[in-house]
Amino acid sequence: MITNITNTIDVVSYCRVSSQGQGESGLGLEAQREYIARAAQQNGWNIVGEFVDVVSGKLAIEDRPEGKNALAACKKLKAQLVVAKLDRLSRSVHHIARLMEQTEFKVATMPQAKTFELHLFAALAQQEREFIANRTKEALAALQKRADDGDVQSVEKIARRTDALEKGRTAANRAKGNEVIQERVNSWQESVRDPIDLCIRKGGRTLQQVADCLNGKGITTSRGGNWTSIQVSRVMKNLTLQFPAKDAAL
């Protein structure tokens, strides 16, 4: 009787960062590679190639320079595509559904997920992004309302963010400027999502342990400084990241 046979699967690694700055600094890219490497080691995948794109997730993978090459490599090598997280493939349910018809792929953070489950996760992620966009607009509107009602801190916050853009702008353009700033904040927070998640996966069970982990990796805060437990708490809350059940973040 034959036992303990492990079928090795050849995979092509695909990573995507959304800006040239992230591509050059490795912010986000390093975390994606680590996700994939850990999943490959745990699941017996043989990485036979790697492709990296610096491009917006709005484009379908077949329309990205290296994404197209990654798909071609999968076909040539009879390998499956692997990404760190589903949103590295696309933020569109339509794009992911179309890709499912073209090739098999795996997600490092959900290595055992089936096609139906991946499609469901993609739909939920798209819905969550829509919720976040609405919450951002509501938060900006609430901030403006508090300022209009005379709240000093809200007035100062808006002033700090828009002072350089205020001159000669209409109310509509000022609101648009606030949205742009908030989008930059959201973009930066998304760039540290994976590093924070990895620190938790590696055993970080308190806010300070996560802060120490980030500092040890050389990942800085938005202002280029070291992380504190308070900063970690704020970003984790905004990203809805949590410690595993029954672990306390003190």
Rank of each mutant, 00 (worst) to 15 (best):
V155T: 15
V155F: 13
V155K: 13
V155H: 13
E156H: 09
E156N: 12
E156D: 07
K157V: 12
K157A: 10
K157G: 05
I158T: 04
I158N: 00
I158V: 10
A159P: 07
A159C: 09
A159H: 11
A159F: 13
R160L: 11
R161N: 02
T162D: 00
T162E: 01
T162K: 06
D163N: 08
D163I: 09
D163E: 05
A164E: 11
A164R: 14
L165Q: 02
E166L: 15
E166N: 15
K167C: 10
K167I: 15
K167E: 13
K167V: 15
G168V: 05
G168M: 03
G168H: 02
R169I: 07
R169L: 06
T170L: 00
T170I: 01
T170M: 03
A171D: 08
A171P: 09
A171V: 11
A172I: 15
N173V: 14
N173Q: 15
N173C: 09
R174Y: 03
R174G: 04
R174K: 13
R174C: 03
R174V: 06
A175V: 05
A175M: 06
A175S: 09
A175W: 07
A175K: 12
A175D: 02
A175N: 10
K176M: 08
K176H: 14
K176L: 12
G177C: 11
G177V: 08
G177M: 03
G177T: 13
G177A: 11
N178S: 11
N178K: 13
N178F: 09
E179Y: 11
E179D: 06
E179C: 06
V180F: 08
V180Y: 08
I181C: 00
Q182H: 14
Q182L: 05
E183H: 12
E183C: 03
E183P: 06
E183M: 07
R184D: 07
R184W: 15
V185S: 06
V185D: 00
N186K: 05
N186I: 08
S187W: 10
S187Q: 05
W188Q: 02
W188T: 03
W188Y: 07
W188L: 02
Q189L: 03
Q189K: 04
Q189W: 06
E190Y: 12
E190I: 05
E190F: 12
E190Q: 15
E190C: 07
E190R: 14
E190H: 14
S191E: 00
S191H: 01
S191F: 01
V192I: 11
V192L: 00
V192W: 01
R193S: 00
R193A: 01
D194A: 09
D194C: 02
D194I: 04
